[in-house]
Design a protein around this nucleic acid. Structure first.
Lengths: 338, 338
DNA sequence: CTGAAAGCGCTAACAA
DNA sequence: TTGTTAGCGCTTTCAG
């Protein structure tokens, strides 16, 4: 079935292409009767504008790329959802790009725009460093997510990881915990997230006049809950004494819950646990998980807003936006006195 | 910065556009020296083919749409990941379309292709019925996912829900359960999934010579774990006696675990629980969840394969493919004798 | 307010 | 093996 073209409609309606185009775009200055007859021709033929052709003519694709390490990680899938919804609201379509933390895939991300595929890119890098991004970016409208250090020329949205970690510690302190551990220092983790969270953890303790204890920082071989469960079990079995734990993310927290429960340690009575990211996972655990809650909706909105400005020509220096976070209090570290 | 065009490269290299095009496409019959000098011109200018223009000329977009109810539901995000990976391997990009179970959004899905946006669509409908899909489909290459009844003209990939439910029941029977409940009949649920699963549940019981008991089919007001936890609690408090439960999906199963645990009922000793979809959630619960495991990777591959065939011109009648499933055995309904 | 025609950058059929 | 040229369908000056 041959595609119906603007010219076909014009011919049937007995007007020029321009007039049809005006009708399609709701251009105000069209005689009502003309508009009507053109509309009839459109309906009769079932005309749909060809987006590819429009793009070629306008140079705008109406699409943005969303590039993340893993689309099925709860944090990213939840964030994706907000970005997808916000993008739709703004008239953009989203193409997803999964990097799987692979350097090449991350490099490829920045090339899409050059090929005219998308108008802009929202990118959560984990492997590429500041310099590489700056070098490859050229004039691609780009907004970075996450805690990596970023080029000064690039927009960036994140939450304040340090103060969030401090909040976690304070919450645990308010519950009476004094020997607070940090779970989730992964070897070769090149994102800045862990660093910042660990920094905040220390800052929170020092601020409360509590001495730091290296034994309370638990390393974990990889990002799985299994690994963190083992890390906790190991700590327990070498007699480390702790009554609260700040986890690098919810998956670690889940591992912690499992390790503690398996060892007969009561959560939150013996050890209170705080996760990070407030993913849906935290509602499904036993006990449910108290977790640092980045304002994901806000994160998505701000990222889209900055990107839209770049796409519309903003050329200024990189803007760094910090969006709010809170603590989602559930059973693993309940409100004080409850 | 002006875009570098094929013509610019041709001019610099002193050849025709066609020759440049041949080099870009690795067309074999190009004189080595020519190829080299053209390549130099390409590199020097930093030429990137404009995909939009190519599309307009070829009529192929190289993109497929993936339309699902919710991208952050674990089942869908896991499936998306497989589809995204398979699509990348096949040279397609994926654009995501979240319908949020909205009829209008579902209708819109089938229009993308008409607008020349994508070459084909993988679609998991929940609101549209057979007739509507058939009517709107026209000649869009389309593969349907899920358990809705589908038009005979449309390709469709699913698992055998009935036999999977039978498998669940058999597993529970092998653990000694005899009063097996079904959790998750949602009012106004217009997908065929529940029906088929419920049918299999009955079939499994009847096959084992166990009389059906309507009291053991638990209705749930909505799809949240909270609702199903309440449903279980309600059943318990009205004295319904059961020792096993087949759940419509993992979220219901999680609710069941919570309701049972809260009531002091031991899982799996007092009541064994089987979920559905084998989402990552099941690894995070206490106890971990035994669950029907659709072969998601296979599902993705088959869907992509069928779609690719349609895109490449296959015009035959709708093909219905059943992909394998298994039972992921974890603690909520362990292996017999363990 | 409407019409004609020149691109947008690439592909592919046809020549050479 | 390489060059020419006519589209792909829409937008957008610029006349009228």
């Amino acid at each position: 079935m041959k595609q119906v073209r603007l010219a076909d409609v014009a011919e049937l309606a007995g007007v020029s292409m321009k007039t049809v185009s005006n009708v399609v775009h709701d251009y105000p200055h069209v005689a009502p009767q003309l508009r009507k007859s053109v509309q009839e021709a459109i309906d009769q033929l079932g005309y749909k504008p060809n987006l590819t052709a429009r793009r070629l003519a306008t140079g705008k694709t109406g699409m943005i790329a969303l590039a993340m390490p893993e689309i099925d990680h709860p944090y990213f899938s939840e964030l994706s959802r907000h970005i997808a919804e916000g993008a739709t609201r703004r008239g953009y379509r989203v193409i997803i790009e999964q990097t799987l933390s692979d350097v090449d895939a991350e490099h490829a991300v920045l090339k899409d725009r050059e090929a005219g595929l998308v108008d802009g890119v929202i990118f959560h890098p984990v492997r590429m460093n500041t310099l590489e991004i700056a070098k490859l970016r050229r004039d691609t409208p780009l907004v970075l997510l996450g805690e990596s250090t970023t080029p000064v020329t690039t927009d960036h949205v994140m939450i304040d990881n340090v103060s969030a970690a401090v909040d976690s510690v304070k919450h645990l302190l308010s519950l009476g915990s004094r020997r607070i551990a940090f779970l989730g220092v992964v070897e070769h983790d090149i994102t800045g997230s862990t660093d910042q969270r660990l920094l905040g953890y220390q800052q929170g303790l020092v601020g409360a006049g509590i001495a730091l204890n290296p034994d309370l920082v638990f390393p974990v071989p990889d990002f799985s809950p299994e690994a963190s469960a083992e890390a906790v079990t190991a700590a327990l079995s070498r007699g480390v004494d702790f009554d609260g734990v700040v986890c690098r993310d919810d998956k670690f927290a889940i591992g912690a819950l499992r390790g503690l429960t398996a060892a007969g340690v009561k959560v939150p009575d013996d050890v209170a646990v705080v996760g990070w990211d407030n993913t849906a996972l935290g509602s499904y655990t036993t006990p449910t998980l108290t977790s640092i809650a980045p304002d994901k909706l806000r994160l998505a909105e701000v990222a889209l807003e900055l990107l839209a400005e770049r796409i519309n020509g903003y050329q200024g220096i990189g803007r760094h936006r910090v969006v709010p976070h809170s603590l989602a209090v559930r059973h693993s570290a309940p409100a004080p006195g409850s």
